[in-house]
Amino acid sequence: MEIRFAENKDIYAIIDLCKAHTAYEKADYNAENKAESLEKLLFATDSVLKCLVVEADKEIVGYATFTKQVSTWDADYYIYLDCLFIQEHARGNGIGKQIMFAIKDYACSVGCSAVQWQTPDFNKRAIKFYKELGATSKTKERFSWKFDL
């Protein structure tokens, strides 16, 4: 197993994982035009979005995407973990912990002393995992305001 930054060749595997991830979180997903959009977001010279993939036996079995953001309250930068998903058959082998520590290492390398993320309240397995890492949580509701450009 290898955890590495995503490459162009991984785009369709990442899209498949995104689709599985949204199904797991009981959300809708539209894969239309995702390859082009993700390639721009991940591989543009000035890209702020980072993506780690987990490759096992020549198969991408997991991914995590994250970006550097700022907290006005803390007057500091942090890493926001947007997505973390591992296929069911690859869970329970310590991959999640390895990804989280890879993100922590990246955070430290860019001067961030915190990583923040969210997970649905029904994802008890993830909540248990994050608490075992030593993470704490805040109760908030996330809103999404979508509109046409």
Rank of each mutant, 00 (worst) to 15 (best):
M1K: 14
M1V: 09
E2A: 09
R4Q: 09
F5L: 11
E7G: 09
E7S: 09
K9Q: 10
I11S: 03
I11Q: 01
Y12D: 12
A13V: 02
A13M: 05
A13G: 04
D16S: 10
D16G: 14
D16Y: 05
C18L: 10
A23C: 09
E25D: 13
K26C: 13
A27P: 03
D28G: 06
Y29I: 15
N30I: 10
A31E: 15
A31S: 13
T45C: 06
D46H: 10
S47I: 05
C51N: 09
L52K: 08
V54C: 11
A56D: 13
A56K: 11
D57G: 12
Y63A: 01
T65N: 05
Q69V: 14
S71H: 05
D74R: 14
A75R: 14
D76Y: 14
Y77K: 07
Y78L: 12
H89S: 09
H89A: 05
R91D: 11
G92T: 02
G94V: 02
G94R: 02
G94T: 11
G96A: 03
G96S: 04
K97N: 09
Q98F: 01
I99W: 00
D105E: 07
A107S: 12
C108L: 07
C108Y: 02
S109N: 14
V110G: 11
S113H: 10
A114E: 00
P120M: 12
F122L: 12
N123S: 10
K124D: 11
F129S: 09
T136V: 10
E141D: 08
R142V: 08
F147H: 11
D148H: 07
